[in-house]
């Protein structure tokens, strides 16, 4: 009897252990499923990693912006104080007022917009025409021509800059907006090759049938382009215009060269000039220079603000740009 009970007890114990193990296994499975998911990419652990990475990378991208904005509101005592790092003790608009009047902001902004919009518009129109030409027609030496175009993107502006400078000086284009508009009209200029390639790949994606049937109805090539291809290419038009507007707005290297000494200046250049003038008034390490840090940042915010506003209204186009234009096609 005793033996029997012992055996039974043993087997019951074994059974218990077995059940216990099963339960743990089940639990383990469930934990695994929640954390890692059936195929990893739907588990909780995975989600945590993704969001942690996203948040830390977003922090890297936003950090300078936040720094710029908070510090631009600081008073001199805030900048010097060790207690104030992120949040200024009060919203101090004085820095903005200073830059606003010194730059004559509304007027400077208008200039900057004209300086960016005129070349951007010219570049959009010309690259649409040129891109269509490359995309739709059998051309002699097409590959060579496109190779040359890509080369023009790689060549640094330092090479072409000095002959252009001479050329502009000869034709009295220096200090005039035409120094940027003329190359843009002819499909050259700042990043010209990129705009043409965007239109090129977009037109290649469009089905030919519509244009062919219009041609059968007797429409000429130009008519087909303006009334059928171009309206269909509206996404590409918007994108090219936005990109070129932003790039021309921010351009300072060539603008500094071609526009120096004229009244028309881009906003970043004007700010730079103002800061240089201001800092030269005060000796190194003086209090006024310390204050200048905040004023400079306020100026930078004012320079970027118009672009940021444009970006928030049009960011859908930036974001969808590459999908819709099929830049990735080639």
């Amino acid at each position: 009897m005793k033996k029997m009970t012992l055996k039974a007890k043993q087997s019951i114990d074994a059974l218990k252990r077995f059940i216990e193990e099963k339960r743990y296994a089940k639990l383990y499975n469930r934990v695994q499923r929640v954390l890692i998911g059936m195929r990893f990419t739907d588990g909780l652990l995975y989600k945590i990693i993704i969001y942690a990475l996203l948040i830390s990378l977003a922090y890297i991208y936003l950090y300078p912006m936040l720094y710029m904005i908070t510090n631009s509101f600081m008073t001199m005592s805030d900048i010097i104080s060790v207690n104030v790092r992120w949040v200024p003790s009060s919203l101090n608009w004085e820095n903005y007022r200073l830059v606003w009047t010194a730059l004559n902001y509304p007027r400077a902004l208008l200039d900057a917009f004209i300086l960016a919009a005129a070349p951007a518009l010219s570049a959009t129109v010309s690259s649409a025409i040129i891109g269509y030409g490359f995309a739709r027609f059998r051309l002699p030496f097409k590959k060579v021509l496109m190779g040359l175009m890509i080369m023009s993107f790689i060549i640094p502006p330092q090479i072409t800059m000095l002959p252009m400078f001479r050329m502009y000086a000869n034709y009295e284009l220096l200090g005039s907006i035409r120094a940027f508009v003329y190359p843009a009209i002819l499909g050259q200029g700042l990043n010209g090759a990129i705009y043409i390639l965007i239109f090129y790949s977009f037109f290649r994606m469009l089905p030919k049938s519509l244009e062919e049937s219009a041609e059968l109805d007797g429409a000429g090539r130009i008519k087909v382009f303006t009334s059928i291809a171009l309206p269909l290419a509206m996404p590409a038009v918007i994108i090219v215009f936005l990109f070129s507007f932003v790039w021309y707005y921010n351009e300072t290297y060539l603008a500094g060269l071609f526009l120096s000494g004229s009244d028309m200046l881009t906003l970043p250049l004007r700010l730079e000039q103002y800061i240089n003038n201001f800092t030269s008034l005060y000796p190194e390490g003086s209090r006024a220079r310390e204050l200048m840090q905040a004023v400079k940042l306020a100026g930078n915010v004012l320079t970027l603000l118009p672009l940021l506003i444009i970006y928030f209204f049009t960011q859908r186009h930036f974001v969808e740009s590459i999908d819709r234009t099929g830049i990735t096609g080639e």
Partner: peptide, 16 residues
């Protein structure tokens, strides 16, 4: 086709 890319050719010769 050349008509369409004509402006580019001119621009390339002058500005590049």
């Amino acid at each position: 086709g050349l008509g369409f890319i004509f402006i580019w050719i001119v621009g390339y010769l002058i500005f590049t």
